[in-house]
Simulated assay, not measured.
Amino acid sequence: MIPDDAVLIKQGAEARVFHVPSFLTVPEGCIAKERFKKTYRHPDLDQYLTSRRVGQEARSLYRLKKAGLDTPTVYYVDTANATIFMENVIGITVKQRLLETQEENYQSVDIDTLADVIGRSLATMHNLNVIHGDLTTSNLMLRKDKGDAAVVVIDFGLSYNSNLPEDKAVDLYVLERAFASTHPQTEQLFAKILESYFKTSKQQKQISHKLEDVRMRGRKRTMVG
């Protein structure tokens, strides 16, 4: 259950995100992500699907953290109330970082370091067969006071498990489109991300080929409208 002192900081189509300032002995409090009920579904089915999704997100975070990927630490999973209590990551999103430096053409951004850590992080995630499902620059964070070298991957609400190269390629394509639509002139940055990714990926050739296929389908959809 969400504590009384929790402050709503974001609401999406699937969940509400709160900052809980007083949580155990954690100085910065924690983040509580609560999935809300879908009234159009049968209550029993809704509870089953919601509990399954909460469990999947918590398991993804745990597996990735255990493998060394920087993700929010899970403190507690309240399955009955479809809520995950997790680390409150102090910092800014990669989206904010790039938007703040866009006018200077990202000159103050350590492009090589940022690209390398993003690429290696995503490859680590995919090597464990975890598909993020919503890779955007809003779901990549930079820890405060650590510059462009500490990227935290967040929001695994749409994550699932798959060893298919195409699913991993789609994950990358979604991120590529996020860069293209939100951050002008970052083609070189994304190219460096892919370079770092493929150095670490266990399915480099298969995912590379599938990414080209996914890009081609995306271009065809754009042309058709």
Rank of each mutant, 00 (worst) to 15 (best):
S159G: 03
Q47N: 14
T113Y: 05
A150T: 03
Y160A: 00
D134I: 08
Q11G: 00
H19C: 00
R120W: 07
I154E: 04
Q107Y: 12
R16I: 01
T186K: 13
F36S: 01
S181D: 11
H209K: 13
S196W: 03
V174C: 05
D155S: 11
L98P: 04
M216C: 07
H209W: 06
V7A: 05
R215T: 04
M86Y: 02
L164M: 07
L122W: 09
D110A: 13
Q11N: 00
H19W: 05
A115Y: 09
T182Y: 02
H126P: 05
A15C: 13
L99P: 00
H132V: 09
E28L: 09
T137M: 13
E57Y: 03
D148N: 06
F23T: 02
P27L: 00
A149I: 04
S51D: 14
V7T: 11
E28T: 13
V151F: 12
V153A: 02
L194H: 01
Y160T: 02
L194R: 04
A149M: 04
K146D: 12
K10H: 15
I84E: 08
V94P: 06
Q102C: 11
L24I: 08
A149K: 08
L128I: 06
L158Q: 12
V77F: 03
R53S: 12
T113F: 09
G29H: 00
N139V: 07
V26G: 00
M141W: 09
I31T: 02
R35P: 00
R177P: 01
E212Y: 02
E34Y: 09
R120D: 04
D116N: 07
D171T: 08
S181R: 14
N105K: 15
V77D: 04
K202Y: 13
F18N: 05
L8N: 12
C30P: 01
R177I: 14
T39S: 15
Q56D: 05
V151M: 10
R16H: 01
T124S: 10
Q204D: 05
K205A: 06
R35I: 01
R59G: 06
S162W: 00
M86C: 04
K210W: 14
L164I: 08
N88K: 10
L211W: 05
A82H: 15
T39W: 13
F198D: 01
E176I: 09
F36H: 01
F156K: 11
D44F: 08
Q204E: 08
Q56L: 10
E166P: 01
E57R: 07
R59Q: 13
E195G: 02
N163A: 11
R221C: 13
V117F: 10
L189G: 00
H126S: 08
M223T: 12
K66F: 10
L194E: 02
N161L: 06
S51Q: 15
V74L: 10
F179R: 03
V174W: 07
S22A: 15
G91D: 04
K10L: 13
S181K: 15
Y197G: 10
F156M: 11
H209E: 11
E34W: 06
M86D: 06
R35E: 01
D70A: 07
P3Q: 02
Y75V: 13
I90T: 02
D110W: 05
Q206C: 01
I207F: 06
Y40C: 03
Y197R: 11
I193K: 11
E195W: 00
D44N: 09
L69N: 04
S121M: 10
Y40W: 13
N161T: 06
